[in-house]
Amino acid sequence: MFEARLIQGSVLKKMIDAIKDIVTDINLDCSSTGISVQAMDSGHVCLVLIELGSDGFEPYRCDRNITLGLGLKALSVVVRCANNDDSITIKAQEGTDNINFVFESPNGEKTSQFEIKLMDIDSEHLGIPDTEYDSVVKMPSHEFQRICRDMSQLGDSIVVACTKDGIQFSASGDMGSGKINLRQSSLVDKEEDQINIELNDPVHLTFALRYLNYFTKATPLSPTVTLSLKAESPLCVTYPIGDFGSMKFFLAPKIDD
């Protein structure tokens, strides 16, 4: 038996909105410690990794490790039927080919139940090692969204460069070019408005803006985002989910041949 109740059902809605343009099917890997999802886009350019600890759910019950394959289209249709302040309970019995969703309003007056057929999704599982990054930049998520949106008006690619002077985003195309520089904040009122730049080594990488713009669909999940960069390695864009999980996007850099 698997059962997990998320008090803030809106978090699940936001997670699905964040990935539905990148992946079509996902496996929910459920264990006693929580739920994880690993999925690649059809072109194998990026990888999505969602990790949700069991402490984010009340109750959480997972008697045996179970993998639940779901089509995102169906999942998206179902969670859209939940109100933002509803709790969402996910239930699956061993040996059945369905997953159940129960939505409950805060006062308990309205409950809704939906069922989705499980799918058998064949996906390769990759090991994501702990990496020592050259630079780790934490910034307001809406700022990153704005930069990606603005730069995509100029070109298809963005160059991200971290130096002791800060982080620079640049793009160029037929129309012209643009550069945006961010420096580490000195004094800000709210921690979420802070720009924090950790630099071990200067780093300079190029990425496809199309994918970064997909990733910024996760902006409603968190006021902050972290960009982890390493030479000739995938960029890791991390959105924390409350204090119990995260959504990470890995994007392979573009390489000059």
Binding site: L47, E124, L126, G127, A208, I255, D257
Partner: peptide, 14 residues
Amino acid sequence: LIRQRDISSFFPEI
């Protein structure tokens, strides 16, 4: 020429 590498080539399969 700018090339986009396959993301799975960066991580080991398990």
